[in-house]
Deep mutational scan, measured.
Amino acid sequence: GSLMYASIFGNVSAIIQRLYSGTARYHTQMLRVREFIRFHQIPNPLRQRLEEYFQHAWSYTNGIDMNAVLKGFPECLQADICLHLNRSLLQHCKPFRGATKGCLRALAMKFKTTHAPPGDTLVHAGDLLTALYFISRGSIEILRGDVVVAILGKNDIFGEPLNLYARPGKSNGDVRALTYCDLHKIHRDDLLEVLDMYPEFSDHFWSSLEITFNLRDTNMIPGSPGSTELEGGFSRQRKRKLSFRRRTDKDTEQPGEVSALGPGRAGAGPSSRGRPGGPWGESPSSGPSSPESSEDEGPGRSSSPLRLVPFSSPRPPGEPPGGEPLMEDCEKSSDTCNPLSGAFSGVSNIFSFWGDSRGRQYQELPRCPAPTPSLLNIPLSSPGRRPRGDVESRLDALQRQLNRLETRLSADMATVLQLLQRQMTLVPPAYSAVTTPGPGPTSTSPLLPVSPLPTLTLDSLSQVSQFMACEELPPGAPELPQEGPTRRLSLPGQLGALTSQPLHRHGSDPGS
């Protein structure tokens, strides 16, 4: 009898404990919600809404976190579960008819179910419309201010047509639940991603989709105040780019002037030289400038040598048109050559190039014969006009050509200096018209024969001689050997007369 009593008592207590286990969990969670309300000092109306929603959600799901349970299964099984949970929507909604099984599984994985109690606001006026909503159960109302403009029910759709707008718009009203509602919502990016994977279904979906109420604000059109608020930074940046392009296009129409201050000032006329910023005076940081632009901040801005204009002085008759350009485009679109090309026009420029290279940067340069637009006047290309890779490749080509020119210049200078040193070592320090008596009659020769300089066969020296023939050397430049009979510069000019005159010897006659 005691054994029977113990078994009955144990079973009854276990049954009672299981009955009250759900209630215990409910009270535990309710205590957490109330502690949250007390800690954050939530006001009474919002506090009442929180408690009511918790009670309804507990009775609806029995305190089970559906998302946590669903995430515990593998992905393939999750797709089947989501397809079952959203079967009513996918079967009865017209846009989803005719979709393949794979497309429906992908869509079912992207849908999220939302449960809303009465009085809950789903979308506020001015919120971004980031999702498309399908009503599965219940009814909602749409308000503009305090005026109800629409009441939607089961199988209705609200949001915005995503295929017509590249960016999400703003809501033009509040969406509030009238009863307990079940909503299926899919985010904008998720829907577009699935439709991109199934393009054959995309056309059918957009053609058959009928949005019951379009929440997009109709005033959000390009150029409206609301649109400016939504895309303020983007609009200002776009206007700045367009104004920069218009100014650079105007600059290219004036090829007669070359400016070292950047493309923003290349198009300024002579009357605007004294102004601080020219056409860019209202925004000094709008356009890029070269490193020399920092010198323009000092006094005497109108007389600054940074602004270059072609000189009108005539060229000498024998002067060549100019050196070879550094870039391939210089032959086609440049009416002034790079300062480095002028360094190779003569030997005198070679000796004085490194010492006063900055001073020569603004000297007169030889002109190319074609009066085409200036290379320095070409505006900086924006990322939309020329690819970045093209600019980098041009810079690399320019750097390689500069290296080759520097190597060639160093070799030419070394060769010229070597020839000058050899000339100085071969010439005796001094010569006299009267020579010392020699031991015999073989001493009648006034000077030792001097062998002429070897013929220069280097390509670089031939180019130097060509430049010497075309360029007029300055007075202080050293002379180079030329073709024809060679003669030492330090010898007297009348050596031929010395050989014809008898030598005057000093000596005593033994017979006297």
Rank of each mutant, 00 (worst) to 15 (best):
T372E: 09
S202M: 11
A266I: 08
Y198P: 01
P316H: 09
D249P: 13
D396R: 06
L480I: 08
P299N: 06
T455N: 12
R400C: 05
T228P: 07
P320V: 11
P387H: 15
R247W: 10
R408H: 05
P454D: 04
R385I: 05
G322K: 11
L191A: 01
H184R: 07
S465V: 08
F134S: 02
S289M: 15
G145Y: 06
G493L: 12
D249G: 08
V434I: 12
E297Y: 15
M327I: 13
C470L: 05
S312M: 13
T415L: 07
L152G: 02
P288M: 05
R360M: 15
L128K: 10
L402S: 05
R358V: 08
S207W: 03
A469N: 12
N155P: 03
P373K: 12
R307G: 11
A370P: 07
L191P: 03
P373C: 12
F158P: 01
L495I: 08
F311K: 12
D189V: 08
R505Y: 08
S445V: 12
E229M: 11
R307N: 01
F234C: 08
M413K: 01
E253Q: 14
S432C: 14
P263M: 09
K170F: 10
G287F: 05
I142Q: 01
T228F: 10
P452R: 10
L498V: 08
C337E: 15
K170M: 08
L162A: 10
S289Y: 04
L498I: 10
N214Q: 01
T499F: 09
L261P: 12
T457H: 07
R386G: 07
D249I: 15
S293P: 13
Q399F: 05
P383C: 04
H504I: 13
K250T: 08
Q463R: 10
M220D: 10
L491A: 12
D127Q: 06
R394M: 13
T212Q: 03
P321Q: 09
R240P: 06
P428A: 15
I350N: 07
R360K: 03
P369H: 09
P321N: 13
L419F: 06
I140N: 01
C181T: 09
S208I: 03
G145T: 08
P305M: 06
E257P: 11
L448Q: 11
I378Y: 03
A477H: 09
R388L: 06
P320Y: 15
P449A: 09
I135E: 02
H504K: 10
Q363M: 15
R240K: 10
D190K: 01
L215M: 04
Q418K: 06
T252L: 10
S462E: 10
G511I: 14
C470G: 09
F213K: 01
P485D: 10
P510D: 04
L448E: 08
N163S: 12
L419Q: 08
L448H: 15
S313A: 11
D189K: 04
G511Q: 13
A433Y: 10
V147Y: 08
S333N: 15
Q418S: 08
S285G: 13
C181I: 08
E392S: 05
A477T: 08
R144I: 03
S293G: 07
Q237D: 10
L132V: 10
N172F: 08
P446L: 09
S304W: 15
H187V: 09
K250F: 13
S202W: 04
E328V: 11
R388P: 05
R360N: 12
E160Q: 03
Q361R: 09
E257D: 08
P284T: 11
L473K: 07
G173S: 12
L420E: 06
P291K: 11
S460R: 09
I140D: 01
P321I: 15
A166Q: 08
Q494D: 14
G298I: 08
T442K: 04
G438S: 11
T436D: 08
L128Y: 10
L129M: 03
S313H: 01
L375Y: 14
L129S: 01
P325F: 13
C368S: 07
P168I: 09
E406F: 01
